[in-house]
Amino acid sequence: MNFYLYLDKKTPIHRLDPRTKLFLLISSFIVATIQQHPIFALIVAMPIFAHGVLSGSLRNIRRIIGLLVAIGILAALLWSIQAKGVTPLFWKFQVEPLLYGISTGIKIDSMIVAGIIFLSTTKNEEVAIGLVKLGLPYSFSFAFCTALRLAPTIMGTARMVAQAQKSRGLDLQGGGLLSRMKKYIPLLVPIFLTTLRYTNQLSMALESKGFRAMEKRTFLLEARFKARDYWITLGLLLVLALVIFIRIKGYGEIEGLLL
């Protein structure tokens, strides 16, 4: 079972400079969250989805489609309960909070999808180079990427530990909140200790391969801004300006919504 998301493809998105991909991710977040109305949220979700198609990331998005639907519905419910509106729909429901909830569900899903696309198209090492080129120290960039890398490893360990404890009769279902929490100790202790041992050995392996031996290091992968990176960055800046302009002008709000 592989929990690592990167898909080794040669799409135009994969070939972009990691900084451009980072900017694409951040822009997706801004664009996805800035408007209030579900129509706008849907309009914005479409280019994000198109980005997913273009970058060949659909396989990973499909893997979590159930999760996306669940999060979408849950978010819609949670956020519509919190808000108040003016137009009654039926029983205790009103139009505006419902619209607001749906819009929030779409926004959260859009952000998750944008994140998945980023991880599907960008190698960890590229993220590190991107961060270094943006002026962050290499140690920090490397730690950040190793953390990304560690997540699948920990999940693999968790799966093995769960199988071992289930075989010894651990039943996580049933019982009150407190007894349930207690039941997780046989899972958490081995996972934690295995991970600790892993990171300890990893640090020795890194040190033995000359990690931080030089003031500056080089990279095999090259990260250079090419014409397409400039064009895309420019395009994204224009889109952001447009979206912010529309927002300031007051479009995209749900009228009568009280938060």
Partner: peptide, 10 residues
């Protein structure tokens, strides 16, 4: 990874 740490040329 190792040679990169030694700051060798690509």
């Amino acid at each position: 990874f190792g040679p990169e740490n030694l700051a060798l040329s690509p």
